[in-house]
């Protein structure tokens, strides 16, 4: 097992290197020069501009610049925001909790919906319940999250006035009252994300159960006289969960992307909102850091998925 984990980590490191290299090169290839503001300024002579370039390391070879950038990213020196002059890492520390709460809860909700629904669907395929569930799953991943979000706002905020439609990021849970407020304002963003994710997961769960149900070991379990409940929940479910668990780990970065849209709709001051507003303000250090974080997230969760798969399915370790 240790050898397997080490091998996986050794594969993950070059992936991260390559992704960060791609992010860096896109930025380096892009039009625009950090010195362009000085170029327009007649008070800054050309040789001064050249010396500034030299001192900032802008004249270094491409690979050297990439190396310096990557090392400082790993050391947590992410530079300062152009717009607010605050260290980027501070901005991200402020925003991350909002995103993680909403995404985390939504993800848990979607798993708690998808697994039981997938199981029931697969036990009686093409029954009324299965058809309903399949239709809902299909709608779930066909509706773009921004549309679900806007429709929910329209129904529950504008018409019914149940929930506020702007998420108050400064709200802190101290007592019962603020907790209720928190639940109310999180309800819609969480629903939007959970609905989308549950659609894919349900279909996957059902397919995986259907793959395992006709196998020999299921028949053996039934032949031993076990109750149907034990056969499904103890024998079939355990094996069917293997690919689903991997998908859950792999899917987290996708939800992160979904959160960018959701945060925009409900005006949550999370990391996705930070990315969009930074793009609007051409705040390059922040944009780079957020892109880098999402790259790290993707690579980490790929690694986690691989390791979980290795634990759950011993066959994988030896291939």
């Amino acid at each position: 097992m240790t050898a397997y984990i080490i091998r996986r980590i050794l594969i993950a490191i070059p992936t991260l290197l390559v992704i960060s290299f791609v992010i860096f090169s896109i930025l380096a290839l892009a039009p625009g020069d950090p010195m362009s503001q000085f170029a327009a300024n007649p008070n800054v002579p050309a040789e001064v501009r050249e010396r500034i370039r030299e001192s900032l390391g802008l004249n270094d070879p491409f690979l050297v610049r990439y190396g310096k950038w990557f090392v400082s990213m790993l050391r947590g020196e992410w530079g300062f925001s152009f717009a607010s002059r605050v260290p980027v890492i501070e901005l991200i520390k402020q925003r991350l909790p909002q995103t993680i709460t909403v995404i985390g809860i939504a993800y848990l909700v979607s798993i708690m919906i998808a697994i039981p629904v997938g199981i029931i669907s697969s036990v009686k395929p093409y029954s009324i319940f299965d058809n309903l569930a399949t239709t809902f799953a299909f709608i779930g991943f066909s509706v773009p999250t921004f549309f679900t979000g806007l429709v929910l706002i329209l129904i529950f905020s504008v018409n019914l006035k149940w929930f506020p439609f702007i998420y108050d990021s400064t709200l802190q849970v101290r007592d019962w009252e603020s907790f209720v407020k928190m639940v109310k304002q999180s309800a819609m963003p969480v629903t939007v994300l959970a609905l989308f994710q549950a659609g894919t997961l349900t279909r996957f769960m059902r397919a995986s159960m259907l793959d395992n149900l006709p196998l020999d070991y299921t028949r053996t379990a039934r032949a031993k006289g076990l109750s149907e409940r034990v056969v499904i929940l103890r024998h079939v479910l355990r094996n069917s969960l293997i690919p689903v668990v991997t998908l859950i780990a792999l899917g987290l970065p996708t939800v992160f992307a979904g959160a960018i849209v959701t945060e925009q709709i409900f005006r949550i001051q999370g990391i996705g909102e930070l990315l969009i507003s930074s793009i609007g303000r051409s705040d390059t250090p922040v944009i780079m850091s957020v892109a880098f974080i999402s790259a790290i997230l993707v690579v980490t969760f790929n690694l986690v998925a691989d390791i979980i798969y290795g634990i759950l399915d011993p066959r994988i370790r030896y291939s």
Binding site: T15, I19, V22, I23, I26, L27, P253, T254, F256, A257, I260, L275, I276, I279, I287, V290, A291, S294, A295, L297, V298, V299, N302
Partner: peptide, 11 residues
Amino acid sequence: ALPQLPMLMLT
């Protein structure tokens, strides 16, 4: 492994 939406937005 590239983060899709952030990459799209960045480019």
